[in-house]
Amino acid sequence: MDSTVHVVDDDNAVRRSLAMLLRSSGHVVETYPNAAMLLQAAEKPAGLTPGCIVLDVRMPGMDGLSLMETLSRRNVQLPVVIVTGHGDIPLAVRAMRAGASDFVEKPYAEDRILEAVSAALQSSRDADRQRLQSVQAQAKVQALSPREREVLGALVEGKANKVIGFELGISPRTVEVHRANLMEKLGVRSLPEAVRIGIAAGFARH
């Protein structure tokens, strides 16, 4: 599915011209005249199409910062590019602290907004790839026995076989057997590869 740029701006002329610019650069665009309309779209079963949000910071009703906070509470994790007038920079800085990927000051050059959108979309694709890797790693780890997961967790922490054996009450030789078995189930040939899957699956590395 193509990434989508979701443009939220109460100014009809600005919204349309920005949408035209983005579409002429090859982007798929959805537009919304206010925060409520975006939230309404986000509440649909399919949710918002992956991509990024270009958000005017100063709008009637819910402003851009409040919208960002609401999206965060609803676990909508799309990168946000804040568009701001000169007088709204303090608010834009607050938005950056709240997690906005960039802010672009009006009047902006076309290449500046396109650059910000491209960076946000790349960030979104990277996040999607990391989430996919995490899901795949978790599925692989679920195929391990409870003891093999314990051994993998200890390996992720950098512990030696003797230490793992002592902590689990088993012999170092048994640890080696579990280690060989878990590596086979994970489909890897080296310890670093197994550790990488463990980390992606959520094992904390100390």
Rank of each mutant, 00 (worst) to 15 (best):
D56L: 02
Y108T: 07
A13P: 00
T49W: 06
R16C: 06
V104L: 06
V54P: 05
M20C: 02
V83S: 04
P33K: 08
R58D: 08
K44H: 08
T31H: 04
L71V: 03
L55Y: 08
E43Q: 13
A13K: 08
R58S: 12
I53T: 04
C52L: 09
N75F: 04
G64M: 04
S25N: 15
N12E: 14
S66T: 08
P107K: 10
A19S: 15
A35F: 01
V80D: 05
S101F: 00
I53A: 02
M20F: 13
V54E: 06
L67M: 07
G47E: 09
V83K: 01
V7E: 07
R73Y: 05
V80C: 09
A109L: 14
V93L: 15
E105A: 15
L71A: 10
S25F: 11
L65Y: 04
H86Y: 14
V104Y: 04
P90R: 09
D11S: 12
T84Q: 06
Q40D: 14
H27P: 06
F103H: 10
T31R: 02
M62P: 07
P33M: 08
Y32F: 15
I53Y: 02
A92M: 11
A13V: 12
Y108G: 04
N12Y: 11
V54K: 04
G51F: 01
R15F: 07
Y108W: 15
A13F: 07
G87R: 05
A42K: 03
L65N: 03
A92N: 13
P79C: 06
V8M: 08
G99R: 04
H27V: 01
V14G: 00
S72N: 13
M37D: 15
A95M: 06
N75S: 14
Q40C: 05
